[in-house]
Structures are given as structure tokens and as C-alpha cells.
Design a protein around this nucleic acid. Sequence first.
DNA 1: ATCTATGCAAATAATTTGCAAATGA
DNA 2: TCATTTGCAAATTATTTGCATAGAT
Lengths: 127, 127
Amino acid sequence: MVKTRDTTARKAILDILTTSDKPRTVKDIIQLLSEAALEVDRTTVFRIMNAFTDRGIVRKLEFGEGNFRYELLSLPHHYHIVCTHCGTIRDVEGCDVDEIEKQTAKKYNFKIIHHRLDFFGLCEHCQ
Amino acid sequence: MVKTRDTTARKAILDILTTSDKPRTVKDIIQLLSEAALEVDRTTVFRIMNAFTDRGIVRKLEFGEGNFRYELLSLPHHYHIVCTHCGTIRDVEGCDVDEIEKQTAKKYNFKIIHHRLDFFGLCEHCQ
DNA sequence: ATCTATGCAAATAATTTGCAAATGA
DNA sequence: TCATTTGCAAATTATTTGCATAGAT
């Protein structure tokens, strides 16, 4: 396992993810870093996100937008609701699909490591 | 609503999707068309998939591979199991998350149109 | 001092757009 | 016929790679 250096950019990105209520894109992150007066190269952000993903610090997700989003792996288990009109994504607490999971594992002899459950629809504003 | 012309390429793509047991990428589709002796331009396939998506004929999905996959919207409701080792994706019948769905809709005043539930793990061969 | 991290330029890959030619209804 | 489709070239967008330099321990 390779060591991780605690650089300014990495600390700032962890900070951003910690205070986010939804998964973030690289674009988001660059923007937020910039608002914090930190200009970090696009390549570097991609590389940091990959390093974090490899080390199990973040989870790489996507919601059909044509790009990836990242969230802290240390967040409590949750799912997402995605507004198909305005694109808003929101974390939603808890998730109980144990029963389905158990049945699926047995029926298909599949060792389940994790799952995702996301609801798509219209948020309060877009209905 | 714009009219749809029943061209050779479109018919062949619908045929491919109908006989697939998992969502397909544009690359897959081009390959399968080619095996059926039909050389269709990449651009055309992308355009057809977008047209089908807009008309509610197919559903656009992704599984963290960095590209989209498509499946017939007319398929019975199902979810997917994705092997994180060999990348195999498989359709899995049925899906009962009604209770979670109801609670979520009420709690967040969110009008749910559809959801996705996918399990990631190791298939029979990769365990 | 040494090895990892970053910036910059350039390369890939997926997907989209413009436009003229081909084709289905 | 005539609007919709397709092919081809070129543009866009997300992401990755190579390499020399800056920075962390």
C-alpha cells in the first residue's frame, strides 16, 4: 500500500467532501477549491480522486450525467434521490434491502459486496 | 412527437436489444451489428440510441464503466448484478422496494418516477 | 535526501454537431 | 416527392498519460 501525503489540495478536497450533502463531480470540486482561493489543476484533481478511490477513502458514482461523482466512503450508508428535471441530487438516510440482497446472493450464487439504490423523479420545486 | 422511420439499422438494433440478457453499450451494438454483416457508423448508433431514449423505447443506464448502456424499456421490471472483477452484468428478475419508495416520497416530498437497484460483487466464477 | 504530488501539454475515449448525400413512407 | 436518416469530418467533454519540477516527510 502506497503512502499518502497530506498536501494542501488533498486536505481541501477532503474538507469539501466532508461538508457536502451530495456526491461531487471533479468540476464541482475545482469550482469549490477555487472559491477557497485554491487553484488546482484539473489533472491533479482527477489524480487525487483516483488515489482516494483506490485507497477506499471515496466511492466513485454516476447518475447518468456522463461524468463521475465522488462521496466519502465513511458516510453512513444511504441512497440518493435525483431530480430528473433540475438535476439536483440529495443524500437520503438509511437503506434496507437486506431481504432482496440475501435472496439474490443465494439465487445467483453471487457474492454481494455493495449495492446502490437511487430514486429518480421530481423534487419539491420541479413537480 | 416526431415520426420514427423503420430503417435497417433501427430494426437490427431493436433486434439486438430484444435478444440481450443485459444492457448494451454502443460499442457492443456496433460489434453485434457488424457480426450481422451490417456496418453502421458510430455516430448513427449514438443518434439512434438517443432517439430511442427520447421516445421511451430504451432506457439509458451506466455501471461506472465510463460509458452508457441501453436496455429496452419494455422489459419487465428488474435490477442488475454487476461483477466488479470481470465486469459481467446480468439482469435479475423482480424488485420490491415499494415500502422504501413510499416512505422516501413522503418524507422528502419527492415524486418518484423510477428507481434503480443494482448489486455489485463477485459472480460465480470470480469468487 | 528521497520519493510522492503537481502542473502542463498532449493523448484517449465517449459522445455530439454540421452538412451534404441517401433513403423510407 | 420530401422529410427523416445516415456517413464523414470535425468539435466537445471527461479522463488519462508522460515528463520535468515542486513539495512533503
